[in-house]
Simulated assay, not measured.
Amino acid sequence: MRVLAGDIGGTKTLLQIAECRAGRCRAVRTQRFDSGSHDSLSSIIREFLKGEKNKSLKAACFGIAGPIRETAKGQSVKVTNLPWEIHGRELKRRFKLSRLALINDFQAIGYGIEALGKRDLAVLHKGKAVKHGPRAVIGAGTGLGQGILVWNRDHYVPIATEGGHANFAPTNDMQIELMRYLLKTAGRTSWELVLSGHGLVRLYGFLKERGAAPESATVAQAMQTGDPAAAITRAALEQNDPLANQTLDLFVDIYGAQAGNLALTAGATGGVYIAGGIAPKIISRLSDGRFMQAFRNKGKMSPYVEAVPVQVVTRPEVGLVGAVMAATRFG
């Protein structure tokens, strides 16, 4: 069976045609698109399928960064960080697909996690996983995604959440100042406002305003001429820039704390997986102990989270792998 799968985010869209037999899938063709350069998912699919001679696509599944709505008119989603409205029935009709499903991008990552091997994961904390225990996945990138995986008979079923938009909770005096800064500059607090690419830039601005360290003219210029979050990360990891270093430390502190919160909320005795585009790029900072210190700082529940395994997903196309798997199940 041939399936069409997609991983649709605010920054990039990955599409793939895969050949699946007896529960195993092989990628036939994969292509990356800049999401912001297109006005709709339909236009990207049209471009991807242009010249595709084989009309035997049986099913499609798209993992999309946004909450999926289920109504009498079918599935639809407003992409959180793009001006796109996607309707399942419309895509199904336009591209003459017999079956099509829209799922949240972290549902897709949840499906993909089951297909990962040891080389696709970096262990932050070994812990002691409970067999078939609930799992949790969290990932900072363009936004902040979170999901829960629950065992059902012979596989994990991923459940999407919008926990990234829940209110941020400070853990020390400086983070209380940050909370006030968010209220002043953004009008509210949320985890995504600090744990994302734009969140990293916001933390930099907060520390700069606070006078934590002088701003480097070189870093300021790099932020203006390129991706500001990437410029901050490079300045911290490669140039040992004081302000960028403090920014990344604060980011890791908050990331670890919220990953630990999610472990408690989900009862994630089966493990916590750190996905998203940012984690693999800052793996040296995530693995130096700071992240896990914040993760474990849960008072009476510290022994509980101490037992939870924590791993970083280093395979960037995990969401696409999951969308392929979901297409075969829904198909």
Rank of each mutant, 00 (worst) to 15 (best):
E114P: 02
G139V: 13
G143E: 10
E70K: 07
D34N: 15
S43G: 12
V157D: 08
M174G: 06
V130E: 04
T185Y: 12
F106N: 07
L264Y: 02
G74I: 03
L82Q: 09
R329M: 15
C20M: 07
I232F: 02
E47K: 13
R99G: 00
I109P: 01
I113S: 00
M174C: 08
R89M: 09
G277K: 04
D253Y: 04
R93L: 15
G226D: 14
T189A: 08
N167F: 08
S76V: 05
E162P: 02
R315P: 09
M174R: 15
R180C: 11
T218P: 03
A257Q: 02
T269N: 05
V201N: 07
K281V: 10
G139Q: 10
R32D: 11
V28P: 00
M174K: 14
A115V: 04
S287L: 05
E90K: 14
V305H: 01
A307L: 04
K298G: 02
P158G: 12
A60E: 01
A231E: 04
T80W: 02
K92I: 06
R24T: 11
R94H: 08
A257E: 00
N240R: 12
F168T: 02
E306N: 05
L195K: 02
P309I: 10
Q246F: 13
F48H: 13
L15R: 00
C25I: 08
N297I: 01
V194I: 15
T80K: 03
R46M: 12
K131Y: 06
K298I: 03
N172T: 10
Y304C: 04
K92F: 07
A229M: 01
G10A: 09
D173N: 14
V130R: 05
Q258M: 13
A101R: 01
N172W: 03
I278Q: 00
L182S: 09
V308G: 02
Q146F: 03
I17K: 07
L57V: 07
I254P: 01
D154H: 12
T328E: 06
E209G: 05
G9Y: 03
K50E: 14
T185I: 11
D39T: 15
L124G: 01
T71L: 09
A327C: 05
E70M: 05
G6E: 07
A212Y: 14
L49C: 13
A235N: 12
N261P: 05
T233P: 02
G145N: 04
E238F: 10
P158C: 12
P242Q: 07
V313T: 08
A222H: 00
V123M: 05
L144H: 03
V252T: 09
Q31R: 15
L49N: 14
V324T: 15
Q311V: 04
K73V: 09
A213M: 13
A323K: 06
L14C: 08
G331M: 05
Q224I: 03
F48I: 12
L178V: 04
I232V: 15
F291A: 01
A27Y: 03
V252E: 02
L248W: 03
D7W: 06
P83T: 11
G289K: 11
A169I: 05
A235Y: 10
Q146A: 14
A327M: 02
A115K: 08
T30D: 09
I282W: 01
K208L: 12
